[in-house]
Design a protein around this nucleic acid. Sequence first.
DNA 1: GTGTCGGCCGTCTGCCGACAA
DNA 2: TTGTCGGCAGACGGCCGACAC
Lengths: 395, 395
Amino acid sequence: MKLSSAGLNQQSPEGAKNFLNSELWHACAGPLVSLPADGSHVVYFPQGHSEQIAVSTNKEVDAQTPNYPSLPPQLICQLHNVTMHADMETDEVYAQMTLQPLSPQEQKDVNFLPADLGAPSKQPTNYFCKTLTASDTSTHGGFSVPRRAAEKVFPPLDFAQQPPVQELIARDLHNNEWKFRHIFRGQPKRHLLTSGWSMFVSAKRLVAGDSVLFIWNDKNQLLLGIRRANRPQTVMPSSVLSSDSMHLGLLASAAHAAATNSRFTIFFNPRASPSEFVIPLAKYVKTVYHTRVSVGMRFRMLFETEESSIRRYMGTITGISDFDPVRWPNSHWLSVKVGWDESTGERQPRVSLWEIEPLTTFPMYPSPFPMRLKRPWPPGLHSFSGMKNDDMGIN
Amino acid sequence: MKLSSAGLNQQSPEGAKNFLNSELWHACAGPLVSLPADGSHVVYFPQGHSEQIAVSTNKEVDAQTPNYPSLPPQLICQLHNVTMHADMETDEVYAQMTLQPLSPQEQKDVNFLPADLGAPSKQPTNYFCKTLTASDTSTHGGFSVPRRAAEKVFPPLDFAQQPPVQELIARDLHNNEWKFRHIFRGQPKRHLLTSGWSMFVSAKRLVAGDSVLFIWNDKNQLLLGIRRANRPQTVMPSSVLSSDSMHLGLLASAAHAAATNSRFTIFFNPRASPSEFVIPLAKYVKTVYHTRVSVGMRFRMLFETEESSIRRYMGTITGISDFDPVRWPNSHWLSVKVGWDESTGERQPRVSLWEIEPLTTFPMYPSPFPMRLKRPWPPGLHSFSGMKNDDMGIN
DNA sequence: GTGTCGGCCGTCTGCCGACAA
DNA sequence: TTGTCGGCAGACGGCCGACAC
């Protein structure tokens, strides 16, 4: 897997000379984001890709957009050349993936490894993430470091000095160096970053509510990333191509690649996209074909908290049906309607099978609401796309 | 023609509530840019659109990109809903156009008006444009206003005061208000903008080499625009959609619209695009079918100077052939190879017929290298796209 | 334990005419 | 005519502990 800081030649690998740190990328992307491995088999969902574009351009897909009848709702692909990037202007992390749809013959021959469920996101251990306060971002002062955080990830201070001071050097996603004066002072004593901090805040255009995260990695390097708060008005529509043409472009790219078994390239923005739309094939097969779900079944699902940790929410399956019966019939994308135990009203009403953990207490076979498989392995693409309704007998 | 400042809902007309000033847009776009009128007939060149995308994404079209055999190299369209916009972040001007390809029947019935050659760009008269110096953009001082410029476009000062001072209020492309202290002082006396200027420079992120322009319009309003210097490293590739998919998207959009006679939307960035790719139909027909050009013929062509005025360059036609014989055979786009009298080596080696003024001294009929017309008016789209070589007998 | 503030000093912003190109 | 500079005064940046939650 290649890592690079997005520059001018972001799309040409030979131009990406400076590599960015994988730990930092994952820390900025969040604990739930994992990228499939280079060379592995994945399932690509044009529908999910389309949703990301809709969010990025702030424009829903136009009702007039033509369908691509030849394009199934999911493509089994081999994944080439996953590269991690960060936007030069905003430091927003994203991944570039090159996908190659498998021919029907290749799909039969694919070596299915049940264990290959995608490496879990390797979140670094020695790191902290703090949401910036008004004081942190004001020009009046520096950055107040939470005590536990400083003790965990910063090199220890020499407490023989009065006051204890040191210079910290941290590198961001673009491998730029930032120097901070780290001092332990005040009454009561506290850790502060003073000189150098305001330069960082203004250069990255941070405001109160944004987060910074520091990582102390195995090579004794200090890494520094940012996560901007969800400012709803941040999305800037591109003036390069109309959103309708972008939607069409992704469909045409995928359809062309599927028809010719050639490669196509996509971008995945983990913090913008509502859901991951490139899923490890093994994970997909396991949940779609080897897990039985039914209406009324209880499940749990992982979410990221505001403090960048993980918490589980519980819910109940209330229905199983096509999310978009017109455009994408017989797709497993967001096919599960759910209700949430803690109904803040903000959690999504639909999920995909591979996002949830069903809480099943009854034995695997038989089951009261089984999702039976006619074939243990689908012979080709089209049976893949047409299987759901056949197997579940519902709509 | 609607005018709006690009915001979140740039692509949805109902969200564009604040209208931007047409004079200011044209002043920022430059003296050579003209937009076809709402409702008029135009010729759209996917190839030119593709070039703009290549420039915007800093990525040439991939050799693997499939052709759209059904998409001719030019589409005759009716133009709906031209709107002028300015990028919220950079103030870069661009236009959004909704195009509807004509059916073959409509092409026969089109009411061809030879006079409808597109309104010439209405450059305002009371305006000035100054390239910023190091002193202008330094935090050390204000903005030095050229004397003639101040006298032409600023309201007259009250010279009874010592020193003469007034407050100027100017509005930018987003209709934001900027206040400046305009003072006439120093030894020798000169016009200066002091208070308020540095705020403007930092907000717009202007650097030495960028230009500002002030307009005093008929309604006694002061307007304020910017033109950034051509910084070659400015182009930021989008992380929304791969450039290959963007190229495919524009082709698919145009092809779908042509097949169904439905509307599609494009963006035109006058200062990024190498050439205009939406040409008034009358202008196209006049130059392609009613103008005879031949190798060796002399011509002149308009260019914009660094001072935002117009100058003419002379050249000689050295050849007539397809610019891209594989992808876009039989297209008039950049079909004329030229040599320039003042060969700085920087002027483009190819132009389109409608960009040049042939200097013809011989009578219209006959001519030594005539471009004969088999038909005075093409009956349909396909004869349009296939006509060039037939008529000229060359390749 | 940490967010915000008043106090205080030093740097930089920003207005002025001098001067030269 | 106008770009850059030295001079100067005031604003703001930025470091400190006090204090409260």
